[in-house]
Amino acid sequence: MAKRVREEEIFPRNPNKTYGLMEIVKGSSPRVDRGPDDMVSSWPHLLIREAILFAACFVIVLALALWAPPPLEKPADPTKPPNPAKAPWYFLGLQELVSYDAFWGGLGIPGIVIIGLMFIPYLDRHHSGIGRWFAKSRSTACWAFTLIFVVPSIILIIIGTYFRGPNWGFYPPWNMPVEPPIILHSIFGGMGL
């Protein structure tokens, strides 16, 4: 196995051959019928990145827990409704929609959006622009996704979070009524609830 052989024994010089041994390159696997690829070992290239990401994630969450403790208001009291009563922030876009139309805002539109999202890959099957951010050949799809889904979701949440005050009235955040009056008979009036 380790017996030394002359180059001519492996690659006999043959005048009919149009190829020959050009160079011996360093490598750990034979590359037959393959162009050069840019693969690297996951160990350590992927592993070290994953470890760093976990460390960063852990440290940031721990820091937030230490310096920005979660809110805890007074105990739940069914007789003292706040005005306005607000859903968790990620549902405030939904609550904002509900204030325009109860069914379509709360279920109709969100349902269509979720079902629509699921059908995207079955409708947009053209094999272009994979693996690139905002590929030119996909500009229509990118704009549509941004304008129909991303921007409205974010804007509705921002409006619901910062621009809605007592009775779901529209107030700029710098002019938000400080002590919202509690009017029991109309707390849900503005939200169509």
């Binding site: 890959p121 947009d124 099957r125 094999h127 693996g131 951010w133 905002f134 996909r138 990118c142």
Partner: peptide
């Protein structure tokens, strides 16, 4: 979505 990674 933006990288087209959902395609077949």
């Amino acid at each position: 979505f933006y990288t087209g990674a959902y395609k077949p």
